[in-house]
Simulated scan of single mutants.
Amino acid sequence: MGLTWNERMSVGVPLLDSDHKTLIGLINHLHRSIGDEEEYAAVGSVLQALEEYAAHHFVREEKMMEACRYPLLDQHYGTHGGFAAKVRGLRARYDGDPTGVRARECLTFLNTWLIDHICTTDMNYRSWVIGHPGAEAAAQRVSLTGGGRKAVTVDWTRLRVLLVDDNVNFSEILRTILLSVGVTGVSAVHDLDSAKAVISHQPLDILVSDWHVGEESGLDLVKWVRRGPPDQARLPVLILSGHERMTNRDLALMAGADEFMEKPISARNLLLGVARLVV
């Protein structure tokens, strides 16, 4: 059974509550992947997303606590470090042998840790950060996609995305990652005919499609998009595949895709790739 957010978990800071909801969502996708035919790809993607998103969330929390001079900050650093080390260990094992890390094993650790983290450790800083004038501003400056001179600025809240994947759980993993940065305009379909109907009748900013959509090919969808009217033909397309080979990347680009990524996906790389294509 998955985790359910409730108001008793709220730390009173909408930004951090949103982060916690994203972490719960990722863990629930891991739960739903048990026994799925793409369980290994889902486990890899969720572990990568958890590692990246937890790090992002931890920095946000720490920046807020630093701003309000929270006295137990060092203790919190240690808690965050312990979680990060455990997830890195699971990731290292997965990278060495994707079949050696199962969703159930990850869930036992993640469920216990997250509930304890939110309901116990985080509640200690609640009264310090709520209403502090500089705390939330410090957290807002932390971006999952980084910064610097080459940073791409995207108004995520206005983005319209179509996800095409016959694996419903994997589509929801992608939706959760997009939602974490404010993308709410996400449609998800699971066959090419449905994808074509959406593309023909809804304005979109980007198409993200799996290579294999059931018995169909996402490359056929790309070719159909490029043969369409001008607005459709210009639609940015990102192709995902669980079988990374240089020839696959070349085939995807030759078919008309703008970008190609392998599964398991990285949350940060997905967002950076989307950002590059829509700006």
Score class of each variant (00 low, 15 high):
1 M>V: 10
8 R>T: 14
9 M>S: 14
15 L>T: 14
20 H>K: 14
23 L>F: 06
27 I>P: 01
27 I>K: 02
33 S>D: 09
36 D>W: 00
38 E>C: 07
39 E>F: 03
40 Y>S: 08
40 Y>W: 08
40 Y>L: 06
44 G>T: 05
48 Q>H: 13
49 A>I: 09
50 L>S: 05
52 E>D: 04
53 Y>E: 01
53 Y>L: 00
57 H>T: 03
60 R>Y: 01
69 R>W: 07
69 R>D: 12
70 Y>H: 10
71 P>S: 04
71 P>M: 05
75 Q>P: 07
76 H>V: 01
77 Y>F: 12
79 T>E: 06
80 H>G: 07
80 H>Q: 11
80 H>C: 06
84 A>E: 03
86 K>H: 14
89 G>R: 11
89 G>P: 09
92 A>W: 07
96 G>Y: 01
100 G>T: 09
107 L>F: 13
111 N>A: 13
112 T>N: 13
112 T>C: 11
116 D>F: 05
120 T>C: 06
123 M>S: 01
124 N>W: 09
129 V>S: 09
134 G>N: 11
136 E>W: 01
137 A>P: 04
140 Q>W: 14
142 V>N: 12
145 T>F: 07
145 T>E: 07
146 G>K: 03
148 G>M: 05
148 G>C: 06
149 R>V: 11
153 T>C: 03
159 L>Q: 00
161 V>F: 03
162 L>I: 00
162 L>S: 00
162 L>P: 00
165 D>N: 15
167 N>I: 11
170 F>K: 00
170 F>H: 01
170 F>I: 04
170 F>A: 01
173 I>L: 09
174 L>C: 08
175 R>T: 12
176 T>N: 15
183 V>T: 14
186 V>M: 12
187 S>H: 04
187 S>Q: 05
191 D>R: 04
191 D>V: 03
193 D>E: 07
200 S>R: 07
201 H>C: 02
202 Q>F: 01
205 D>T: 00
208 V>R: 09
210 D>Q: 14
210 D>I: 08
214 G>P: 04
215 E>Q: 02
215 E>F: 02
218 G>T: 02
222 V>E: 04
224 W>C: 06
226 R>T: 14
228 G>F: 11
232 Q>W: 00
235 L>D: 02
235 L>I: 02
235 L>F: 01
239 I>Q: 06
240 L>C: 15
242 G>R: 12
243 H>C: 12
246 M>W: 10
248 N>G: 09
248 N>Q: 10
249 R>G: 09
261 M>V: 15
262 E>L: 14
264 P>V: 05
265 I>P: 05
266 S>H: 06
268 R>F: 07
268 R>G: 05
268 R>Y: 08
270 L>K: 09
273 G>S: 15
273 G>V: 10
277 L>Y: 10
277 L>H: 12
279 V>L: 05
